[in-house]
Design a protein around this nucleic acid. Sequence first.
DNA 1: AGTCCGGTCGCAAACGTTTGCGGCGCCAGT
DNA 2: ACTGGCGCCGCAAACGTTTGCGACCGGACT
Lengths: 346, 346
Amino acid sequence: MQETLPPSGPAAVTLRDVARAAKVSVSTASRALAGGLTSRATEQRLQRIATEMGYRPNTLARGLKTRSSRLVGLVVHNLTNASFRVLAEVVQQRLRAAGYQAILCITADDPEQEAATIATLSDQRVDGLIICPTGRNGAQLAALERAGVPVTCVVRRDEGTRLETVLAADPEGAYAGTQHLIGLGHRRIGLIVGRQETTSGRERLSGYRRALEEAGIGFDPSLVHAGRYAPETGLAGCRQLLDRDDRPSALFVANHESALGVLRGLAERDILVPEQLSLLCYEDMPGFAWQRPAISVVDSGAEAMAELAADRLLQRLRGEGGSRAAPEYRIGARLIERQSCRRLEA
Amino acid sequence: MQETLPPSGPAAVTLRDVARAAKVSVSTASRALAGGLTSRATEQRLQRIATEMGYRPNTLARGLKTRSSRLVGLVVHNLTNASFRVLAEVVQQRLRAAGYQAILCITADDPEQEAATIATLSDQRVDGLIICPTGRNGAQLAALERAGVPVTCVVRRDEGTRLETVLAADPEGAYAGTQHLIGLGHRRIGLIVGRQETTSGRERLSGYRRALEEAGIGFDPSLVHAGRYAPETGLAGCRQLLDRDDRPSALFVANHESALGVLRGLAERDILVPEQLSLLCYEDMPGFAWQRPAISVVDSGAEAMAELAADRLLQRLRGEGGSRAAPEYRIGARLIERQSCRRLEA
DNA sequence: AGTCCGGTCGCAAACGTTTGCGGCGCCAGT
DNA sequence: ACTGGCGCCGCAAACGTTTGCGACCGGACT
């Protein structure tokens, strides 16, 4: 019978092979390549032989011994949301530069998938974890951290655990955006915002509200429409807010998925921006700058968040964890004025 | 001195612990949990004990022994392009369902980064690889495949190697799109397309050209604008094609990044779609359906590509690789009519 | 010349699994 | 009652590293 051997090509060259070729023991070979505990001469000789033979250390074996896989889990809800997308891009690149690889996992904001994901990543012996938590699996995350695997939360906080977290400065961002509109003379400002069960949804609403009240404008609940992060929400909000007699003069759309629906709603009603309505969005996305008119946004600073999250995790991976404090970081938002907001004449 | 032991929490429970608790040898424990070579009774008993103790097998150790890491590399140029995004989402999910994890890597279409990435993934002993190749590292990929690691290319082909590849049916898609416009009575059709060094750029142009010629319409090179996949290209193309006397009556934009620039160009010139110009895009993206008017597209079938790529790789991972044929698969494109194309009166 | 010391190196154990091989006991068949 | 066979299990080797410990060698110092 034809032996149908699995196509395991030429067996990889192992440390033993290198050692044998250099006529030293495996241990000195190991030390020479790790740099250090050998004479300068043998070190260089072995480096040379190793590269000549095309030696590549076996990460699994090394990981088994050193109890570290140089893998980091990266868990997000999806890749469609611009924040998650840049998070994935930036974190991945940052980690790679530091010698780690990112394992990408997508949970669809579903606690069960998240639980399974965390378990699997733990099985893979990831060295660390960056995650946007659903909030329902805090116990598992805390257990991981207790087992020596640093966990950094992003975008959302996991209430109930004391995990290191980096968030957007949503209250301030929403405050600044609303204030900007107020400064332009707007008094009736509609808000389309996320579900109030989420941190960001609540915080953005509260920032909006605070700006209003500080300006001496009453908060009118009928001017806010809350819903999922989806175009449909924006469309529904448009309908609710604009098909009424005392129509607001400005709209603040607090997440970019809804914005698509809002744009369509405005077009359907032939409402001119910014002539008849000022429009301000939260979170920048590639399309906004290319719209006509270009859409002003308060940018939530996704890449800054990503960079900070990666840096914090890396620092703890290097063992400089230090502070048990499990702090919370906030990334400042930034107003980007384009052409979708106009000053209201008095 | 306070021993600052690394916070390696409670040591993980190992197979030895389970075996000891069950008063059997490690080998029977292993076999019992793997299912099979033991009596039904001990199998169930050990399953129970294992879960009670919270045993989780060490993937690294297992991988070292079995020479498989249950990791699969996923290499794309970026996550902004819609095709890559759904590729990442779908592949990740598919692999996970089959017990594999995806390592995400981004190359920015840069051969050097790609080379480094492939090397690292190989070091991590990935079991397989799904990659959109730059085309400059075919040798490395071929070597991987020879070493027993199945490689599947997506979106682009690596010329010069005979790797399994799944592509979009770009010639047919562009043909169908152009034909659709012709069927609506258009004779002068502008084309904004990708660089001619890329497979997709060439193939989409050729499909466009074939449709034209079959309809007896002469191919006019001055009606095509080729450039990078970026909004700027679209804007420049708009300028070149529309600021002339014999302006085309329809525009076929063969990639969605450029489309953003085109939309802005049209808005700047106050050109009404579809009244004054019909617009058709290649590759669907979330925004298109929400535009006003909603933009017709020929959808390149990104998720079908992703699914096929994942399935092909998985099949080979399961050892059913069989055919040495290194075949090439094509995913059919599909015209989605919305509201941006109108029939030309004769 | 003897002692000591610092620098290099090899031996062997360990990391947690999987797996070939052989031993043991039990049941059925003569 | 003895043999054969088969099902279940344990022993130990192996996967490719890292690392503590001890051996060895040379030179410098007393």
